[in-house]
Design a protein around this nucleic acid. Structure first.
Length: 417
DNA sequence: TCTGGGGTCCTCGGGCAC
DNA sequence: TCTGGTGCCCGAGGACCC
């Protein structure tokens, strides 16, 4: 696989066999770090860590210069700094990342209407129908890399294959700034000697389970009896892995995907035991969720909360509502009720509120409701701060200040959500 | 060493209806 | 009326992705 430090770059020749490789996976290289360099060219060539400089934050992205020191995404920032003490810490600016993401996605949509964004920095493209317009998949992949570089100013890596799974693996191997084409006829050979943990959907736990049974390479999956695989990872995952191992992946590129839930969660800078502080935080998160629901024209059928205690054990509780709602007060009421029913009273590290089972409420509501909700967010912060001082309840303000925005503003003012 | 935030999907167990 | 089997829904938790 492509090595995390960027030293494993691959670029397939333009004339490479690309028969049947009609699905492209395009992935931006070290996206957040690249966008920060675009914004401030003096950062070019420096080891960069994108993440909040607080004690409890983790690395959101790192430049390849930082990755050479062993810095990786999701690593605590404190640990990353020990590995690379000279790294520059840059707080993330999601508004900026969204803007650049839109420019890149616009290029993809000029190439083919069949674009499935997978996250802010990657997408699948089905290019089988645009061959006459733009050429073979390898040519289209090469063209996209040039256009993204010239028109946006960052680099990306492209995998081209017959299925989404293989295209995704190919782009990962090609990184950074590479292109890897796997012709349909080469799929089985391509997969055979790759480790199971390189598969999309196999994380550390599943990999450990498989490896403990001697299943280390994808070819090992092909010779493992289905019943043994089922016992190890359950029937659904067993069936999927068996298919993927022989290059079968029926998933098509789906341009329109519907969100199934929206939520917010926040980790306190210091663990909190005070029930009133926790209640005001649940209220604030519920209001943020409600604002998003109404702006999208949705109602929630279920409200869920997530509580993480100081020892990192995590509980979730949820409740289906008699009537779907997008009202912050109602969501907050349910969230606080769910929290009250939890008996454990250890210090809390994180709280979260999520709206699930979304349904269309018949159009987004107007400015008045958003403003009323946001005023309630402000009021809750003010009253909590008056009561408890400038502790954890002011975290929203810290976040705003860290991102260079000062005190909290109306969501629309800085593109929040 | 000490673990973010926003999501999706799957499994498992309990309750309930038939 | 009671019991067991089956299927479905719901809630909780885990794994995974970026």
């Amino acid at each position: 696989m492509g090595r995390g430090d960027g030293s494993g770059r691959i670029v397939s020749a333009v004339g490479a066999d690309d028969a049947g490789a009609g699905i492209l996976h395009v992935d931006m290289d070290a996206f957040y770090a690249s966008v920060e360099v675009l914004h401030d060219p003096s950062l070019r060539g420096l080891p960069l860590i994108i993440g909040a400089p607080d004690g409890r934050s983790v690395v959101s992205s790192a430049s390849y210069e930082a990755r050479r020191y062993g810095v990786r995404s999701a690593m605590p920032v404190s640990q990353a700094l020990r590995l690379c003490p000279t790294a520059r810490i840059v707080p993330p600016d999601f508004t900026r990342y969204r803007d650049v993401s839109q420019q890149v996605m616009a290029i993809f949509e000029q190439v083919t209407p069949l674009v499935e964004p997978l996250s802010i920095d990657e997408a699948f493209l089905d290019v089988r129908g645009v061959r006459r317009l733009w050429g073979s998949p390898a040519e289209i992949g090469a063209m996209i890399r040039v256009r993204v570089q010239e028109e946006v100013g960052i680099t990306c890596s492209v995998g081209a294959a017959a299925t989404k799974h293989v295209a995704k693996m190919a782009s990962t191997m090609a990184k950074p700034d590479g292109l890897l084409v796997v012709a349909e006829a080469d799929t089985l050979a391509f997969l055979a000697d790759k480790p199971v943990r390189a598969m999309w959907g196999v994380g550390p736990k599943t990999a450990e389970t498989l490896e403990s049974r001697g299943i280390r390479l994808i070819r090992d999956l092909r010779t493992t009896p289905e019943s043994a695989l089922e016992r190890a990872v359950g029937p659904a995952l067993a069936a999927r892995l068996s298919d993927l191992a022989v290059g079968r992946d029926p998933r098509g590129v789906e341009p329109s995907r519907v969100e199934k839930s929206v939520g917010h969660e926040e980790t306190f800078e210091v663990d909190v035991s005070d029930a009133e502080v926790l209640h005001s935080e649940l209220t604030r998160l519920a209001d943020r969720v409600a604002v998003r629901l109404r702006r999208a024209g949705w109602e929630a059928g279920t409200v869920a909360i997530k509580i993480r205690f100081s020892d990192f054990t995590t509980l979730s509780r949820s409740q289906t509502l008699p009537e779907p709602t997008s009202v912050g007060q109602r969501i907050g009421e349910v969230a606080r009720g769910l929290f009250a029913a939890i008996e454990r009273r250890d210090p809390v590290r994180l709280v979260g509120v999520r709206a699930e089972k979304l349904r269309d409420a018949g159009g987004a509501l107007g400015l008045w409701d958003d403003d009323a909700d946001w005023r309630r967010v402000e009021d809750a912060l003010d009253s909590a701060q008056a009561k408890f001082g400038t502790g954890t309840v002011t975290r929203a303000r810290h976040l705003g200040a860290r991102a260079g925005r000062g005190a909290p503003q109306h969501p629309r003012a800085h593109g929040l959500d």
